[in-house]
Design a protein around this nucleic acid. Structure first.
Lengths: 192, 192, 192, 192
DNA sequence: CATGAATGAGGGTTCATTCAT
DNA sequence: AATGAATGAACCCTCATTCAT
């Protein structure tokens, strides 16, 4: 009867609306540079009670992860496309650029991408899925000696987040982004 | 009888002891992974009154910068030694490793190293001094085509901090540190 | 079932109860001679959390004015009754005595009565209303040459507060109160 | 050997200088509208240690009283002159005006004049001396039925401080001062 | 006597989280 | 399910006063 969802009892219409509002407001806050994610503030801005926010997101971290889930989904899709690319290295590079761009746009996403411990199992699942796709890419690239052997999918995720930090900490423009990413890419080549 | 030839009004013996204790405790807190630097807590642990902490460090930031100044001094010294190394590239690599090690040991130092805006003029001065030494190294290395042309001292500082983040976010051991640093070093070579 | 016909969003029952308790305790503190109005202390005495006090009264001043508003309302009512008294002078005297009694009982009220600058517009409005009623009384009294011409409503307010200070600074009993007030009253007569 | 003073062991020259500096700075602070008399601040401004201030003035109140002692001395002198005036009433009025003027100029003095309890015995002595002179004046004035019988010297002191408050609380000019004082003076006449 | 560093009680305010309505 | 008032721990900072130097 209720629209068949992926997990759990589907939300009532109003509950779903509230959840969406909260996520929306949280995203706006982040975009506005306020990464404190104060649940009271978000509730007020979303026009719902604090309790409602807590019902949907038991902890700040849960909200944080929910925020990035969407982005993550996109990323995993992109990774799977890349994994099928004829040229593994090209696919990898495209994926790295794609990820960096999104991480720079969304602090929350970057944080989750980098974090070693997730609260929501779904996040971990997405991360695993991503790493699997990337591992596949790395394998293929290694086979044609396009990539050094000592780097795994998780390493790549972390290194990319490092690059993201570097870009973010310089107030600089897109040029630096390109250069920094290029330093990473060159650094991934196998030793000559 | 009082040690002479020091700089400034020469703290009273007990004042100096207290200041040192506070810095010591603060360093321990950071090392223990608590980077909140709560002045009350630090005071308690150091066995001094809150007021004493506030006298020495009017704000959290002042403490923060005092903590890193020391490290920074060492780093600048090392950079100047490196700058005189016959082999510019070797000097640079040694300096990078030295910096990374220290940044990993001391979050506060890492933060200041990465930050785009300092509050204390002395910090900016130290940073400028560091960048000058590094710029010199880069120049020499570029002249022998050992380093790509599009990277400046500031970039290098930021990239290294990025690597530091990457290492930190994996819970992994020294091997990863070496590998991540090597990725950076390889990435700095001029394009083939 | 909920009492209807009240004004505004109608506080929740418990909220109203808490608000009243806070005001009650604050009044007791003042009566006990402690005019520091420490919000933490008040919260403790009222058996509510500090946050609750802050919710109802964002600043000490807000509490202060809320405290006096009630008293002020009574005073204005009394002033309007006095203004209708057939004998203007008698009305004025009754009003002065009424005001003095209340000012002596409630430091906060006295302070607001005397203050030249209000922060809450409602306080200013009440004060203006009071002054208008008094001005009316003074006019009528002057017409029958019962009051000197160079005193306005504001002056009267201030002079009465002066008397209040005089009474308060002597530790003495009701006799002094009567005498001091009489000195004022006599001093208000037109020159012989 | 030491210059014979009025009480206690005469101060060493430097101690006297420090004491004077502290009083001077305190007076300037008051004049500048800061009546918090923070002993640390005063010490700093006076260029002496806090401890020195505490040696001379064991409590804030002691400083407060010391500040007004000088004024008080003048006032007592004036009172004694007034007491010898042929016209007792004229002398009284002159004294009231003199006192009011000074109280308006010096908050500290006004506070001590009004206070019911002194810390320094010398202050109480001065106050008693003043009251004695005024009592004498009142006696004489009462004998010629120029003053009501139910007012004593202490009452007069307090009433005048009340007037001072009234003047101070209106932001108004010298006209109000004259009028308010006149209200007091008229109020002091015996009932017709 | 003078100094000023040290003390720490004291008071202020915020905000994550709970729970009565 | 939603609401938002209440809670109170946790921080922050100041400043009167003491006491070692």
């Amino acid at each position: 009867m209720t629209p068949k969802g992926e997990q759990g009892p589907a939300l009532r219409a109003d509950a779903a609306r509230n959840r969406a509002r909260v996520l929306q407001v949280a995203r706006e806050q982040l975009a506005a540079g306020d990464d404190s994610l104060q649940l009271n503030t978000i509730a007020r801005l979303a026009g719902v009670g604090v309790g409602t926010v807590y019902r949907h997101f038991p902890s700040r971290h849960a909200l944080w992860e929910a925020l990035s889930a969407e982005r993550f989904r996109e990323l995993v899709d992109e990774a799977q496309v890349a994994a099928d690319d004829e040229d593994a290295l090209a696919g990898l590079h495209r994926l790295l650029r794609f990820t960096l761009t999104h991480a720079l746009e969304d602090t929350g996403f970057a944080a989750v991408l980098e974090s070693a411990s997730d609260t929501d199992a779904r996040t971990s699942a997405l991360k695993a899925e991503l790493d699997r796709a990337v591992a596949h890419l790395l394998d293929r690239a290694r086979r044609v000696r396009a990539i050094r052997r000592d780097i795994e999918a998780g390493d790549l995720r972390r290194l990319l987040c490092g690059i993201e930090h570097a870009v973010r900490s310089g107030g600089s423009g897109p040029t630096r982004t390109d250069i920094y990413l290029d330093v990473l890419i060159e650094g991934l080549r196998p030793p000559r």
